[in-house]
Design a binder for these strands. Sequence first.
DNA 1: ACAAAGGTGTTACATATTTTTCAATATTTT
DNA 2: AAAATATTGAAAAATATGTAACACCTTTGT
Lengths: 290, 290
Amino acid sequence: MSDDTLTISDRIQAQLDDLTRAERQLAHSILENYPASGLGPLSALAKDAQVSVPTVARMVQKLGFSGYPEFQLELREELKAKVKNPIAKHDTWAERAPSEHLLNRLTDAVIDNIRHTLGQIDPKDFDAACDLAADTSRHLYIVGGRVTHTLAEYLFLHMQVIRPKITHIQSTSNAWPHYLLDVKEGDIFIVFDMRRYENNTLKLAEMAHAKGAKLILFTDQWRSPVHHLADISFSSRIVIPSAWDSAVTPLLLLETMVSTVQNLTWGDTKDRMEALEDMFDQTKLFRKFT
Amino acid sequence: MSDDTLTISDRIQAQLDDLTRAERQLAHSILENYPASGLGPLSALAKDAQVSVPTVARMVQKLGFSGYPEFQLELREELKAKVKNPIAKHDTWAERAPSEHLLNRLTDAVIDNIRHTLGQIDPKDFDAACDLAADTSRHLYIVGGRVTHTLAEYLFLHMQVIRPKITHIQSTSNAWPHYLLDVKEGDIFIVFDMRRYENNTLKLAEMAHAKGAKLILFTDQWRSPVHHLADISFSSRIVIPSAWDSAVTPLLLLETMVSTVQNLTWGDTKDRMEALEDMFDQTKLFRKFT
DNA sequence: ACAAAGGTGTTACATATTTTTCAATATTTT
DNA sequence: AAAATATTGAAAAATATGTAACACCTTTGT
């Protein structure tokens, strides 16, 4: 590296606030696949970032270079140094932290969990579950427990936009028996139950099962007792080097399910989403996204 | 990437015997600090290898490229691909599903998001944020928006066990101004704001800031406007091939923070956790974990 | 609502870079 | 050893690239 140990990536990030809209857009494009994109011709970079050519020229000057060639020169120097440096065997995620840092250790564990979990999932099951969740002729109930209700609600919030006839039940609430009154045969329950498994959730699942509802279960690798009642279950690995379990893998499955269901019901969803957009615009809850 | 998986470096070494004296000299110069030297101007490379300019042009054509620019283009593509694969290359995640299956595509994107995000995080910032969150002399407020309140609550549920003096505020609720009455200088706000950024969250952050509270922000790569007020911010990449954004990366950061804070306050947490266990056992809410 | 300032993009120009041409030198073959 | 062939480098031509000046648009403050 050159005189100072600051990489160009660092400098861009540090200055990110002093940059204008187009320049920020460009900055993200440079960081997107760093440093490769900065090593091409200026015009290619500009096109890639969808900004004009002079914007690129101006920004590199703002970063303290006399011009684009000098900017590229330093990028190449950086690259040389990185390749040469034996430490730069970046098998570490947070590159600036030692590999023993929790950021790296937990990320390792989480990736490992994802790999294990996905490796054991049968895509047929997954697709079948998504088909069920996309079926608007059935009412969809989403059930979570003490901790897992956050996952349940995350799923609920998205599904709410995608389809009608949907209810979020918290198994720890006293009110859940009331919800079961209306359950009809063929309705769907998406149940979350991770250790420590909750009695309420099990009872709720039993009653739903008795009423002829289909059960889709998200659980952990040891499987909640609800598993015996479930039509389809997904078990995620959730252990990380922490006193707590990780919800990352189940969340990934959820997001994939949301995306899949969305694709299955695109015709209807589109209208629903546009309607929602309008409502948000009217309530001025949100800032315009620029 | 090109059709064949051969890198330029491989191709050069394979052809090394068919090259002439000057070309071999040049080849070694390219391989010397690969790929940086090949990414500069042709003339610089020629001078560096002490060969003439046309020699470079000729050899590049011998390698099968139409010209020097095309050669550089492929070098950059190679670099992009290399940077992208720190772990687990082409093995698909859900092995039983084709690589185009959403399970695999979304997982790829999520892993990529994690890598990008972690790579840009300064561990000093992260540790500083954890230190703040572990400081029980300050009250800790956790603030989420319409969707992000699920993340906020996830954090809250865990922190609640780890430390006292903690409050979860939903910025979309009408009640939030009341919470601010009790805020004292030095109190901590952990704020979640992802696109679309919410006006309420911004206002809440402004008021908290005005009261002298410390702000820790979890946002996306484009950064919520709250960023300007925040003492520490973490920007996660959240884009996935879906109509929705991914919360996986921020969740990973959260879990790491929980674990870190837990370690920092272990002496106290231990007692709190045991007390909690007792309470759970008494209420019989949970099944024994076997 | 208007004016001023700052930001952005289009065009044109100067410069740098690559390619081609051609002559000189080295290498191989007979 | 001489001729033929292949290799190399210098210089010129062609192309691509970066920079500067100008004009339009958007935003900000009065």
